[in-house]
Design a protein around this nucleic acid. Structure first.
Length: 205
DNA sequence: AACACGATCTACT
DNA sequence: GTAGATCGTGTTG
């Protein structure tokens, strides 16, 4: 039983996005919605870094949609995609530098019954094994973008760091595919997509 | 005002 | 492995 988890604050998020993306693995995300308390262990992340990263939403410059990425770290950035899904990010780096970490997968911990209802799925591995899935499971939408991540609606805490972390390329994008900016817990069954080749050659890139 | 496409997921072959 | 769903967003006219 864990008794010493700590709230992640500005000092955690206000750093290199790659470091934050890696260190978020194993941390727990908490979300309170309509009196239901959800939590899950983060097992997969991706980094999106600055206007020079073609896959980053900030590559087109500052707009109404991506504005929170340009602000201070430790804020949620939720965007709507493919006409159906929401994806949750945490903003990183200094105020003025647009970057964020996409939370791509969680292992459900608390509020599992409600997640099953929201997803209309029963198997645990179908609840949080993808960025769209986990937002649907928890009920996260664009209305939850721009929130302080140390608030009482949504917050993150330290957890149990993975033993085996895989670093590989991001998925679901058409540009910036070469950057090894996806991280996941190799021992988790909740990762959206495993890269067996990267798991065999840890320092190949 | 109209268009093309996207940091996805599901169902089906 | 691939098509289809479905609509906000940025871009172009």
């Amino acid at each position: 039983m864990k008794t010493n988890s700590q709230l992640l604050g500005l000092d955690f998020y206000n750093r290199s996005t790659l470091v934050v993306a890696r260190e978020l693995l194993g941390c727990d995300i908490w979300f309170r919605n309509n009196d239901i308390l959800f939590s899950g262990r983060i097992v997969e992340t991706e980094a999106y870094i600055g206007m020079d990263d073609p896959a980053c939403h900030a590559a087109v410059g500052k707009t109404a949609r991506n504005a929170v990425m340009f602000g201070p770290a430790g804020i949620s950035y939720v965007y709507f995609i493919y006409g159906m899904y929401n994806c949750l990010n945490v903003v990183t780096e200094a105020d003025g530098f647009p970057a964020a970490v996409l939370i791509r997968a969680i292992e459900p911990i608390k509020g599992v019954g409600e997640m099953q209802r929201n997803r209309n799925k029963t198997r645990l591995r179908d609840l949080g094994s993808g960025p769209g899935k986990l937002c649907q499971a928890l009920g996260i939408t664009r209305e939850h973008s721009g929130l302080d991540l140390s608030g009482k609606k949504i917050w993150l805490t330290t957890g149990s760091a993975p033993t085996n972390i895989v670093e590989t390329t991001r998925i679901g994008i058409s540009v910036g595919k070469e950057k090894p900016w996806r991280f996941y817990d190799a021992d988790s069954i909740h990762v959206s997509k495993k890269d067996r080749f990267a798991e065999r050659s840890p320092d190949a890139s």
